[in-house]
């Protein structure tokens, strides 16, 4: 029996061969080392992210999340629902709170869910994987599993928006959350302080407003570089994708020469716990995280 079991909501971007395929792979490896069992919610749907609003409106969006939660309650009873994607987590938790605050929304959501033969009860917590690590394990406990400390690597812990706001992790500040830095240090790495830790990467607008968003991305990477970071680590697939994928574009636009790997905390933990490069899905990086690969090889 696994030590801890959660009802897992991977989300669209973390599907196999989707944009954060590497997040999913490394999360699975990380969970193997931590003896966590993730029970995927059967037939989960997209959360709507925070861009579906124009067409989707309010109730349809809430209903999307309610469906996932209802499925989770039904198939994975007694577990906390855990998401790895910031937007998935946010949408789910937000829907949960909206429903909790309004009897009308509850009725309406359930009326819609009934069409799919489902009912939402609201008896599971909606959590982010980072919360699980920090709250259910804790840094001391996480440290214990380290076999190959990430010694000498300087990381810029990039928390970004939606893992941090509006909910964030309990006890963390919105302007300067510390948990990602603590996690890096627990893995033996060095977390550099820098001032763009919670700056928005442009989110979905990286796609629709590339010029405007790439300025954001440039600021983030520049500050990480300026403060001596050699790698960025993040808990959010959209952050990861935007900051990594658009570096070439940013270089073109601003004449910069950025080439900084952007990794997930789950990759760090997997490597530090002695996992292989494949387990950590390091081959999924557009900009190879060579220093991590070296450690993984050792």
């Amino acid at each position: 029996m696994a030590k801890k079991t959660y009802s897992f909501y991977p989300g669209c971007s973390s599907q196999t061969k989707a944009s954060s395929d590497n997040y999913l792979k490394s999360t699975n490896s990380m969970c193997k080392y931590l003896d966590i069992e993730l029970k995927e919610i059967p037939d989960w749907n997209c959360c709507g992210a925070s861009i579906g609003y124009a067409e989707g409106g309010e109730l349809p969006r809430i209903t999307l999340s309610a469906r996932n939660m209802a499925l989770s309650e039904q198939h994975n009873p007694g577990m906390d629902l855990v998401a790895t994607c910031a937007a998935c987590w946010l949408s789910t938790r937000e829907a949960k709170e909206r429903i909790a605050h309004s009897a009308q929304t509850l009725t309406e959501a359930n009326t819609a869910l009934a069409e799919a033969g489902l009912t939402y009860k609201g008896n599971q917590a909606a959590r982010h994987m980072a919360e699980v690590l920090v709250e259910d394990f804790g840094f001391d406990e996480l440290k214990r599993g380290v076999k190959k400390p990430l010694q000498g690597i300087k990381f810029a812990g990039y928390v970004g928006c939606q893992t941090n706001r509006p909910f964030g992790l309990a006890g963390e500040s919105f302007e300067n959350p510390k948990y990602l830095d603590n996690l890096v240090e627990a893995m033996g790495g060095e977390a550099v302080p820098y001032d763009q830790k919670v700056t928005c990467c442009g989110g979905a607008l990286a796609f629709s407003e590339p010029e405007k968003s790439q300025k954001q991305i440039k600021d983030i990477i520049e500050s990480a570089y300026d403060h001596g970071a050699e790698m960025i680590v993040t808990p959010c697939p959209l952050c990861q994708a935007n900051v990594e994928i658009y570096q070439g574009e940013v270089n073109k636009r601003f004449g910069t020469k950025f080439n900084i790997p952007v990794t997930y905390y789950s990759q760090l933990i997997t490597v530090a716990y002695g996992g292989t490069a494949a387990e950590a899905a390091l081959d999924g990086q557009l900009i190879r995280a060579t220093r991590l690969e070296e450690i993984a090889k050792k």
Binding site: C12, S13, D43, A49, G52, A54, A204, F207
Partner: peptide, 27 residues
């Protein structure tokens, strides 16, 4: 009333329609 050819609006609609069809987003 929203401005014509607003890119984010188009993207938002596309995103929704994409997910509404299959239940998941096809990137």
């Amino acid at each position: 009333l929203s401005p014509k050819n607003q890119t984010t609006q188009k993207f938002a609609s596309m995103f929704w329609n994409n997910l509404a069809q299959t239940g998941r987003v096809n990137e």
